[in-house]
């Protein structure tokens, strides 16, 4: 074995360690698509959040629900369904681009690495979801956007060690935006749109240029 062969062997080892432990087929386009969905969601939600449109779907039922302190009043708001729609459209469109990329690279979409990424983002997000639910019950609407940003940011920072490193910086950005927005109550939706919309698009383009564009034009 000569020197170039040894170096080649070590490169093989490193490549296989990375491929098997980090989910590197996360596509930048996933970030862009999730960001576009978030901006669309924020745009649709805007008139309901700022009182130009009635956010309760069936006001006559809402009165009864409110008096009975029924949890289901949440499902009687347009905002809840806009949030659900935004989350799923963002998640599905992001998944599609990453799925295409992982097929192209021959990396399992549902392997050890991707499971770790999902678990590390998922745990802070589920905890955040329960926290938000209680915030809404207490009527603390002003803290909803900051809490979304902070819990999501923590999830990203947590997951970054199992995927592309840029995710860590996206996470820090979301956390910082979330913290700042706690002192700008009433502007939550704008911070939310910057964090989930604009930042996903910016980081998505950056990651796409860094990892995907180069490979296409190599």
């Amino acid at each position: 074995m000569n020197q170039s062969e040894s170096i080649e062997t070590i490169r093989d080892i490193r490549r296989m360690m990375e491929r098997s432990s980090r989910f590197i087929s996360l596509s930048g386009l996933s970030g862009v698509s999730a960001g576009v969905c978030a901006l669309a969601g924020a745009w649709i939600a805007h008139p309901y959040v700022y009182g130009y449109k009635e956010y309760i779907i069936h006001p006559e039922i809402a009165i009864v629900q409110a008096m009975a302190e029924d949890y289901s009043i949440l499902f009687n708001t347009w905002l809840f369904w806009i949030a659900v729609g935004t989350f799923f459209s963002a998640f599905i469109s992001a998944f599609v681009f990453t799925w295409i990329k992982s097929k192209k690279e021959g990396i399992p979409v549902w392997g050890n690495a991707s499971k770790r990424v999902l678990a590390s983002v998922g745990i802070p997000m589920i905890v955040g979801g329960i926290f938000l639910f209680r915030l809404l019950q207490f009527g603390t609407f002003g803290l909803v956007a900051p809490a979304c940003l902070i819990f999501y940011g923590l999830g990203l920072v947590n997951a970054a060690k199992y995927t592309l490193n840029e995710i860590k910086y996206l996470g820090y950005t979301e956390i910082i935006l979330g913290l700042i927005s706690m002192w700008f109550i009433g502007y939550g939706l704008y911070f939310w749109a910057i964090g989930f919309g604009l930042m996903h698009i910016v980081y998505g383009i950056w990651m796409w240029l860094k990892y995907d564009y180069k490979n296409i034009h190599a």
Partner: peptide, 19 residues
């Protein structure tokens, strides 16, 4: 190499990783 950094990997995942 793959087993050094993962506590366990199943056959199908190894197959995909190694192609």
């Amino acid at each position: 190499s793959a087993l050094m950094v993962n506590s366990e990997i199943n056959f199908n995942e190894l197959k995909e990783l190694m192609q």
